[in-house]
C-alpha cells in the first residue's frame, strides 16, 4: 500500500505543479507502508478480550446474574444497594487508606535505595542483585511466604512476643493493615528502587562536580541536586503506586481474607467476594465499575502530567 498524499511529506517540499508527477529525489521509489491489516489482528484480539469485557462490566452492573441462570436486568437496583452498603463504602475508605500508606512508606524507601544502588561500587551491585529478588516472586508466592512467616502459632511472632504482643497480627484491624502495607512494601519497593536507580544514573555528573567545587557536602548534594532532578520520576513512580495500590487483590485474599470481619475488605477484594463467593455477579460488576472509573481518572492524570515517553526514558537509564 502506498501513501502519496501524506501531509507530513508535503510540508518538507514545495507544492508540486499540477501534472508534474512526484518530484523530489529523496522520496525516490514510493515507500511501501504497511496497511491496516497489520494492526487488525492485535486490535481485534484486544477488543474482544479487554474492551468488550470492560463494556460488559457497565452493562452487568444493571443486571442480576447468579452464574447459572439467565441474567435479568434490574435497572438501578445494584446502584441503590451499593450506596447504602456500609461494607462497600468502608472498602473505598480502606482502599484509599492502604494506597496512601503504601505511597508514604515506599516512596522514601525506594528513593534512598535507588540513589544508593545507582552508585557504581562493586558491593552495591552485588547487594542490589539480592534486593531485586522479590521482583521475581509472584504476588501469590510473596503473600504465602509472609502468611507462613507471620503465622500466629508457628511463625516469627510466636518467638518474639516482646515485639508482637499476643502474636496474632491478623486478629486486629490496625496490625492486619500494617501487615498488608509491610508486605506491599516488601513486594513493590524493589521495583520502584529500580526506577529511581535508572533516573539517578541519568543525572548529569557535571551538577555534582559543580556542587563539590562550591563545597556542598553529600547531604546537601542529595537535597539540592538529586531530589529536584528526580521530580518527574517521583510523579511517575507515585502514580504507579496509586494505581497498583487501588487494585491490590492477591495479598488481601491470601493474607487476611478481608478480615478480621470486614476490617481489611478493600474494594477489589469485595468485588471478588460478591461475585465468586456470594454469586451476585451483577452487584460485583457495579463495584468493579467504581474501580474502573477511579483507575481511569488516575491514568488520565498519568497521561496528562507525566507522559508515557518519560517512563520509557526512565527505563532506558538502566
Amino acid at each position: 500500500m502506498t501513501t502519496t498524499d501524506s501531509p507530513r511529506v508535503e510540508k518538507r517540499r514545495p507544492v508540486p505543479r499540477a501534472g508534474a508527477g512526484r518530484p523530489g529525489r529523496r522520496s525516490g521509489a514510493s515507500v511501501a507502508r504497511p496497511g491496516l491489516a497489520w494492526a487488525a489482528p492485535a486490535t481485534l484480539f484486544f477488543t474482544l478480550f479487554a474492551v468488550v469485557p470492560l463494556i460488559m462490566v457497565a452493562v452487568l452492573s444493571f443486571a442480576e446474574w447468579d452464574g447459572v441462570d439467565a441474567l435479568s436486568f434490574t435497572g438501578v437496583d445494584n446502584w441503590k444497594t451499593l450506596f447504602h452498603d456500609h461494607v462497600m463504602l468502608q472498602s473505598i475508605w480502606l482502599t484509599l487508606l492502604t494506597t496512601v500508606l503504601g505511597v508514604v512508606v515506599q516512596t522514601p524507601l525506594s528513593i534512598l535505595l535507588g540513589v544508593w544502588a545507582a552508585g557504581k561500587q562493586r558491593n552495591r551491585a552485588v547487594l542490589s542483585a539480592i534486593y531485586f529478588i522479590p521482583l521475581l516472586l509472584s504476588a501469590t508466592a510473596i503473600s504465602i511466604l509472609w502468611r507462613a512467616l507471620l503465622d500466629p502459632n508457628f511463625g516469627v511472632p510466636s518467638q518474639a512476643r516482646w515485639l508482637f504482643g499476643d502474636g496474632n497480627l491478623f486478629g486486629h484491624q490496625s496490625t492486619a493493615i500494617g501487615v498488608l502495607i509491610f508486605v506491599g512494601a516488601w513486594q513493590y519497593t524493589p521495583f520502584h528502587t529500580l526506577i529511581y536507580q535508572g533516573a539517578t544514573r541519568a543525572i548529569p555528573q557535571v551538577l555534582y562536580q559543580a556542587a563539590a567545587i562550591d563545597g556542598a557536602g553529600r547531604v546537601r548534594q542529595f537535597w539540592s541536586i538529586t531530589l529536584p532532578q528526580l521530580r518527574t520520576t517521583m510523579v511517575t513512580s507515585m502514580i504507579l503506586m496509586v494505581v497498583g495500590g487501588m487494585t491490590v487483590f492477591d495479598t488481601v485474599l491470601i493474607l487476611t481474607q478481608g478480615g478480621p470481619g470486614t476490617d481489611t475488605t478493600t474494594t477489589p477484594y469485595y468485588s471478588y467476594v460478591k461475585g465468586f463467593k456470594d454469586f451476585q455477579f451483577g452487584y460485583a460488576s457495579a463495584i468493579a465499575l467504581i474501580l474502573v472509573v477511579v483507575a481511569t481518572i488516575i491514568s488520565l492524570v498519568i497521561v496528562k502530567f507525566s507522559g508515557y515517553d518519560k517512563m520509557r526514558s526512565s527505563s532506558e537509564g538502566l
Partner: peptide, 18 residues
Amino acid sequence: LLGLAIPSQAVIVPMFYL
C-alpha cells in the same frame, strides 16, 4: 494506551461470563 488503564481485577465477572 487506554488499555493500560483497564485493571484485570475489574473485568473478572464479564470475563467469567464470556
